[in-house]
Amino acid sequence: MNGPQRSDGAALNRWRLVLGKNAQDQMPLEGGPKLARMDDALDFLYSREAGPDVRDDIPRERQGGSGASQLTVARWLSEVRQLFPQETAEVLQRHALDRYHLTELLTDREVLEKMEPDQALLETILSLKGMMKGDVLEAARRIVRRVVEELTKKMRSQVQRSALGKLDRNSRSNVHSLRNLDIRRTIRKNLAHYDRDQQRLVLEQIYFNGRARRYNPWRVILAVDESGSMLPSIIHSAVMAGIFAGMPMLDTRLIIFDTAVVDLSGRVDDPVQTLMSVQLGGGTNIAGALRYCESLITAPHHTMVVLVSDLCEGGPRQNLYGVCRDIIESGARLIALTALNENAAPEYDRDTAQALADLGAHVGAMTPEKLADFMAGVMRG
């Protein structure tokens, strides 16, 4: 009988943790101090469900010992990570930020550094980075870099498997001729091997330019809507732009916009800098952004303008349709992506999407890998 009794006790304890401290009299916890700590950690967060002053109503005798009233946000986060499985801890962390607005999680360096770095945390940091200063902002930047590096590794692997990755295999020339010698890169990469005694540079590796950049460069202009609803796509667009910037057959430009346009092409190879520059919210002037993109087109038949937006235009639609028509009639390819992330399940203005498709734009939701495949198809003609 001991086995079933223990099983029933565990189930009752789980229900008691779900119901919270208000059920203590009817369903007392039966277990050691770990269960009590779990109860305190859950109560610290979910007691807010009854209102902001709920903990002030708890009788004093129930606040003694190691109760939730003694938990700080930093201590609570540490407890959660120690007491619960990682997936559960991440759910609690997400509820703390999204449901109960515990912004202390992002304004205390100690707390921030204990959080699990993932894309959800990255999105929250980007949403609230305006509240951060000094060492908290630096800690946030380190988390952003860590998550971006993981995303870049994953997405670069996807691009390498794509048709675009197969095209890029020719980016390093197999013809090692003097004409193809990349002398600047060769010197820079071998500076560590300079022989001071002999006063000469030892070349351990020689680098050659790829023929793709010399003979068939394509300009890719990524125009990314920075409205709050587009945050996952903003992150993936910044990472994709960084990957594209490393591909010799692509000349990559990155534009972010709301009602104003910001050209981030100068830092396109650093997605962290890009993301920390994003200012979420505000209106949306897609027509103005695309008009700026049009000014960057120098060789239309070797240019792709990739608009990443929910297509909710803030200005007159006819202005948007007019600039889209001009881009398409110039010979450049216009690609309107309503989402650019792993899920590719966007919400967008379907009437505008249909109008752009009728003009000749390619409109759809794509994962990064599908975008790379599509671009390869365009480049192959």
Results as ranks from 00 to 15, higher is better:
T152I: 06
G64L: 13
D373A: 09
L191R: 12
H302K: 14
V278R: 09
T152P: 03
T284D: 02
R380I: 13
L250P: 05
K34R: 12
E313A: 11
V305M: 03
W218C: 07
S330V: 07
T107W: 05
R380E: 13
L83I: 14
L97K: 00
D43L: 11
K154C: 00
V148T: 04
I206E: 10
G67W: 10
Y321M: 14
L201T: 11
R6H: 09
R179T: 09
L296H: 09
A68S: 14
M131K: 06
Q82F: 02
P4T: 11
P52T: 10
L17A: 03
L71H: 05
R219K: 14
L105I: 03
E30I: 07
M375N: 00
L201G: 10
R172S: 06
L191N: 09
E226R: 15
H176Y: 01
V306I: 14
T259P: 01
L19H: 05
F44I: 00
S233T: 12
F208M: 04
V306H: 11
R16W: 03
Q198G: 01
R213D: 08
D25N: 15
T72G: 14
K114G: 11
R380Y: 08
A120G: 13
L12H: 12
E110D: 13
R109K: 15
Q279S: 07
G64W: 13
H176S: 03
R214L: 08
V175F: 08
N170W: 06
M27G: 00
M155R: 01
N209Q: 12
P368K: 00
Q160I: 04
G31Y: 01
P4D: 08
G242E: 10
D98W: 02
G283Y: 04
H362R: 15
L181E: 05
T186I: 02
A120F: 10
M27E: 01
I58S: 10
G242P: 10
V54T: 14
M115G: 12
A163V: 04
M132Q: 04
S237E: 04
I328N: 01
A355T: 13
R196M: 13
P346H: 15
I125R: 02
Q86Y: 06
L275Y: 01
L35E: 03
G331M: 02
M375T: 02
R161T: 02
E113S: 09
T107N: 08
H101N: 08
G246C: 05
L92C: 05
Q273Y: 06
R184Y: 08
R267Q: 06
D56N: 13
L250A: 05
G331Y: 00
S69V: 15
A299F: 10
R81E: 09
Q158Y: 08
